[in-house]
């Protein structure tokens, strides 16, 4: 098995993702770590609430990983997404990709986070001091 895909309701273990993809035959590991930003459009964000349609989200994440393995010569992929309530600076997503050569790892990792944001059924609500909003819900 060369993919590790999980949705978790506890803090993500960045080092575990990196260690899992690391291998002697790899020349590099590319890691994307998403973090909760403290502002959106000039407003202070207090926290984010993430929710997933878990079974479908895992399926869509698995599709992304399969596409990555088809398009680039990769060794391993770890893709972990967190759900629940996250404070500023906490980590909702970690994607680690290992490959023999760095170009494949960089390109595949970028593809993974870009596609995850477009297709995987996970939603976040931003909580401000004076209200809350489901991100991207309205035009």
């Amino acid at each position: 098995m060369n993919t590790d895909i999980q949705i978790l309701d506890m803090p993500l273990d960045i080092n575990a993702c990196i260690n899992w993809v690391m291998a002697p035959e790899c020349g590099g590991i590319d890691v994307f770590i998403g973090t909760v930003r403290n502002h959106t459009k000039g407003k202070s964000v207090l926290r984010l609430e993430f929710e997933a349609y878990e079974r479908m989200a895992l399926k869509e994440m698995d599709k992304i990983a399969k596409e990555m393995l088809q398009c680039w010569p990769l060794h391993k992929i770890a893709m972990h997404h967190r759900v629940g309530i996250l404070g500023v600076g906490e980590v909702p997503v970690v994607i680690a990709v290992s490959a023999a050569h760095r170009d494949a790892a960089f390109d595949a990792c970028r593809y993974a986070i870009d596609t995850l944001k477009e297709t995987v059924p996970i939603w976040k609500k931003e909580i401000f001091e004076d209200g809350e909003v489901w991100v991207a819900a309205h035009p």
Binding site: P92, L116, K117, E118, W123, K124
Partner: peptide, 10 residues
């Protein structure tokens, strides 16, 4: 059957 509003993970 599920309704999927615009996703915003990551």
């Amino acid at each position: 059957v599920a309704i999927i509003p615009p996703v915003s993970g990551g």
